[in-house]
Design a protein around this nucleic acid. Structure first.
Length: 309
DNA sequence: AGGCAGGTGGCCA
DNA sequence: TGGCCACCTGCC
C-alpha cells in the first residue's frame, strides 16, 4: 500500500485521509445491506457523508466506507491511524467469521420467511464492536429510536470522550463515566438511562478486565453476568453479546422482532422471553444472524408502509 | 399538542 | 410467574 499521496477530506480540513482502496479480501454487499449493517441498529456512530459514502468511528479508529461499481467495499482512513486500521477494520466487520457458511447453515430451506429476508439483504453483516462501547450504546437504547441513540452517544463523545485526531473522538470509558456527575450525564439527553449508566460505571470502573472476561465466557454465563448490571435485561444483554462479543446464538427480542415472530410464526400470545427461546431453538447456533435478517426486513416493510400512507 | 418510543426494575396478585 | 407502571426527553 502506498500513502505518499494523501488527500484532504472535504468535511474535515485537519485530518489527512488515505486514498480509497479495496478491502482485502474483498467484501461484496448491496448498498442497502451496507446501510442496514452500519446504521440499522447494531452501531450508532455511522453517518452518511454524502450519497454512498459512510463515515464511522469505534474505539479510537475512524474510517470512511463506500462501494465500488461492482459492490465491493472500499475504505479510506486517517493517515495517522496507519498501519493498524486495516486489521482493526477487518475485525470490526467480522471478516474472520465465515458469514456465508453461517447463513447457509440457517434453516432457510424450510423457512420461507427467513429465505425472503436473507434474499433481500445480500451480504448483510454482524459487526464485532468493542464490548464496552456496545454496552454503553444499548444502555442508552431503552425506548429510543436510532436517531436519538446516535445523538446521546455523539454528546457523550463530544463532552467526555478523548480527542484522537481533529474531528475524531472516542466514547468515554467506564472509568471516565464514573467521574461524571449524573446531572451532567442527563444533559446528554440520556433521561432515566443516566442512572443506569452511572451505576454500571461505578461497578465497572474498578475492574477494567470485566468486559474481557465476559467476552471469553460461553453465551449463557456471559448473559447472566451482563444481566447482573443495572439497566441490563434480556434484550440489552443479547444485543451486547451479538453485536459486541460475537455470540451468534444470542437472539435479542425487541418490539419489532416480537411483532414479526408473533405474526409469521404463529406465536400470538408468546412473551418476549418465550419468543427468544423459540428463536434460539428454531434458528439454531446462529440464531442472532437470522434475527438480523428478519429485523432488516421488518424495518424495510415498516418504512414502505409509512411511505404509502 | 400530546402520545409514544428498538427496556428495565420494582411492586403487586 | 405474570401483568402493570414509572422512569426522561425529544420527535412524529
Amino acid at each position: 500500500m502506498n500513502f505518499t499521496n494523501p488527500i484532504e477530506s472535504a468535511s474535515n480540513a485537519s485530518a489527512v485521509w488515505t486514498p480509497w482502496q479495496p478491502l482485502e479480501p474483498a467484501l461484496v454487499l448491496s448498498a442497502s445491506s451496507l446501510a442496514e449493517t452500519l446504521d440499522g441498529g447494531q452501531a450508532f456512530r455511522w453517518n452518511r457523508e454524502d450519497a454512498g459514502t459512510w463515515r464511522g468511528q469505534w474505539s479510537r479508529f475512524a474510517v470512511r466506507l463506500r462501494l465500488d461499481p461492482r459492490n465491493r467495499l472500499q475504505w479510506s482512513g486517517p493517515v495517522a491511524q496507519q498501519p493498524e486500521l486495516p486489521a482493526a477494520l477487518r475485525r470490526y466487520l467480522g471478516l474472520d467469521d465465515d458469514l456465508d457458511s453461517r447463513v447457509d447453515g440457517l434453516p432457510w430451506r424450510s423457512d420461507p420467511h427467513l429465505a425472503r429476508a436473507v434474499g433481500a439483504f445480500p451480504g448483510l453483516r454482524l459487526l464485532r464492536q468493542p464490548l464496552s462501547e456496545t454496552l454503553l450504546a444499548f444502555l442508552c437504547s431503552a425506548t429510543k429510536q436510532i436517531v436519538q441513540i446516535k445523538r446521546m452517544l455523539a454528546l457523550l463523545a463530544e463532552r467526555f470522550g478523548d480527542d484522537v485526531l481533529p474531528g475524531i473522538r472516542t466514547l468515554p470509558d467506564w472509568k471516565r463515566l464514573d467521574e461524571v456527575a449524573e446531572t451532567d450525564l442527563r444533559r446528554c439527553a440520556l433521561g432515566f438511562r443516566a442512572r443506569y449508566i452511572k451505576a454500571v460505571a461505578a461497578r465497572l470502573a474498578p475492574s477494567p478486565e470485566w468486559t474481557g472476561e465476559v467476552e471469553r465466557l460461553p453465551y449463557p454465563e456471559a448473559r447472566q453476568w451482563l444481566m447482573r448490571l443495572p439497566g441490563v435485561g434480556e434484550k440489552v444483554a443479547d444485543c451486547v453479546l451479538l453485536f459486541g462479543a460475537g455470540k451468534f446464538e444470542a437472539f435479542p427480542v425487541d418490539v419489532w422482532i416480537l411483532k414479526t415472530m408473533r405474526q409469521r410464526y404463529g406465536l400470538e400470545d408468546w412473551s418476549p422471553s418465550q419468543v427468544a427461546q423459540f428463536g434460539r431453538i428454531h434458528f439454531g447456533a446462529d440464531a442472532g444472524l437470522a434475527q438480523q435478517f428478519l429485523f432488516a426486513r421488518e424495518r424495510r416493510e415498516f418504512s414502505r408502509r409509512k411511505e404509502t400512507t
